Amino acid sequence: MPELPEVETIRRGLVPHVVGKTIARVDALHPRVARMSPEGLDSLAGMTISGVVRRGKFMWFLTGERALVAHLGMSGQMRINSDSVHVRARFHFTDGTSLDFVDQRTFGYLHPDQLLPTPDSGPGGYGSQAAMIPASVAHIGRDLLDPLLDLRDVARAVKHRRTEIKRAILNQNIASGIGNIYADEALWEACVHPQKMTTAMSLAKIADVYEHAREVMERAVEAGGTSFDELYVNVNGESGYFDRSLHVYGKTGQPCDRCGKEIQRITFMNRSSHLCPACQRRSR
């Protein structure tokens, strides 16, 4: 599933192709693409896109007093000049250009939504200074690349959860954008076992885990995200190359880059977690 670095890469790629353009019409080519919107996508006709904004894994197009939320799900892509057989919606602009929403597994969606003022009066997301956020995204916490996110507040919230640290990291209501890949990488960087209880960790160590997550995702954005297959590409169809920099995720059986011990894969929260049993001892 695309995480913050992948969605940010797509957001940046979209800006020069769509900002300032007016939508002539939107063709919904699959019944699931607008399943969150009873009104469908026809109301977007005539609207001009003034910005592309992201918070965590959510992205939205600003269209005046409303927004078009785009959630990529497991395999969603925004493509310019796509020749994919998995186009689920096509935006036609008045200048003759178009944008495709491609989604092989159809878990993603497009949703015209109302904008609400942000509770803290800060910008709703990265890419706009407007203190507004779509109603369907308002429950999502600020992400680790957001300058308004205070890691001390995050650490205090996590400490009181009385849960495993990886479960807390993946909680999008606390700090958004982190998924399985970058959670595993951040925990390896911080030498913390994914099942370590937050109550057994100091506030400083919890904040350290999130700081490592921030650093990992910053590096991933610079690399264009992580691509394991054709399900994630940027708007021009190019793959990201951060997979070359991964230390534990998908490295089962390979030696740890830090100590040489064999990387293990465990099942936790109904998903795979990758760790070094020497560097990330649960008792540490």
Rank of each mutant, 00 (worst) to 15 (best):
I169D: 02
G127F: 01
I140E: 02
S136W: 00
N173T: 15
N171T: 15
M197G: 07
D153Q: 09
P134E: 09
H139C: 00
Q129T: 14
E164Y: 11
I178N: 05
M132R: 13
D146F: 05
I169Y: 02
A138Y: 01
S121E: 08
Y182V: 02
A138N: 05
I178S: 04
A175P: 12
Q195A: 15
R161P: 06
L144K: 01
G124Y: 01
T199N: 00
D120S: 07
W188P: 11
D153S: 09
D184Y: 07
I206H: 01
A183K: 07
L148T: 15
R162Y: 07
Q172C: 09
R142E: 03
A175S: 09
W188G: 08
H193T: 05
L144G: 09
L149T: 08
R214H: 05
I133D: 05
A175T: 07
V158N: 05
L116D: 13
S176R: 03
V209Y: 06
T198H: 08
P119I: 01
L187I: 14
E185H: 06
L151P: 03
W188D: 12
S128G: 00
R167I: 10
D113M: 04
V154H: 01
R156Y: 02
H139D: 14
A186M: 11
S202I: 15
G124C: 00
L115D: 03
H139F: 06
I174Q: 04
L170N: 13
I169E: 13
A200R: 15
A168L: 05
R161C: 00
L149D: 06
N180E: 10
Y126P: 00
I165G: 11
L187F: 12
L149N: 07
D143T: 01
H111V: 08
R167C: 13
A135H: 08
P117D: 09
L170V: 10
P194D: 06
R167T: 15
Q129D: 14
G125W: 01
V209E: 03
W188M: 13
S121T: 10
W188A: 08
M201F: 13
T199G: 00
K196Y: 14
K205T: 11
R142P: 03
K166S: 03
S128V: 01
T198Q: 12
P123N: 04
P134C: 05
A131N: 03
Q172P: 14
L116E: 12
R142Y: 04
M197K: 04
L149K: 10
T198A: 08
R214V: 08
A130P: 00
E215L: 15
